[in-house]
Computed example of a mutant assay.
Amino acid sequence: MIRGLITFMATLLLFCWPLTALAQDNPSGLFFNHSLLQGRDFSDQSLPAAEFANSNLESANFDHSQLVGSVFSKAIMKNANMRGADLTYAMLDQVDFSNADLSNSIFTEVLFFGSTFKDTKITGADFTDALLDGEQLRQLCITASGVNPKTGVSTRYSLGCR
Rank of each mutant, 00 (worst) to 15 (best):
A60S: 13
F31A: 10
Y157E: 14
G134T: 07
Q94P: 03
S65L: 11
T88E: 11
A60M: 04
L57D: 06
S145W: 06
R162L: 12
S98P: 01
F112R: 03
H64E: 01
L19I: 05
S115P: 07
Q94Y: 15
F42I: 02
Q45M: 15
S73R: 12
A80V: 04
G4M: 12
L22V: 08
L137D: 02
D44V: 00
G84N: 11
Q66F: 14
A100G: 05
N54S: 04
A80Q: 00
I6R: 10
Q24A: 11
S46Y: 03
L13I: 14
C161S: 08
A130T: 08
C141W: 05
N99V: 05
G134Y: 03
L159K: 00
L111Y: 08
F112K: 05
K121D: 01
T155I: 07
P18Q: 13
Q94L: 14
E58W: 01
S28A: 14
L37R: 05
T88P: 02
L37Y: 06
I2A: 07
A125H: 00
S73P: 06
L14D: 04
N33V: 13
Q24M: 11
V68I: 15
L12D: 05
E58H: 08
T11W: 15
T155S: 10
R156S: 15
S55T: 02
S103Q: 09
S70T: 11
A130V: 09
D101R: 02
S158Y: 08
L92I: 15
D25G: 05
G69M: 09
I76F: 06
D93H: 00
S35L: 07
R40P: 04
T120M: 09
L19A: 07
G4P: 06
S59D: 10
D44M: 02
L140V: 04
K78F: 06
M1W: 14
F32G: 02
N54G: 00
C161K: 05
G4R: 15
A85Y: 05
L37V: 07
A53C: 03
K150E: 13
D25I: 02
L111G: 00
T128G: 12
A130S: 15
D93P: 00
A90R: 06
S115E: 07
S55M: 02
L111R: 03
A10L: 11
L37I: 07
N81M: 08
E109K: 04
T120S: 12
N33I: 12
A80W: 01
T151S: 15
A125N: 03
D126K: 02
Q45A: 13
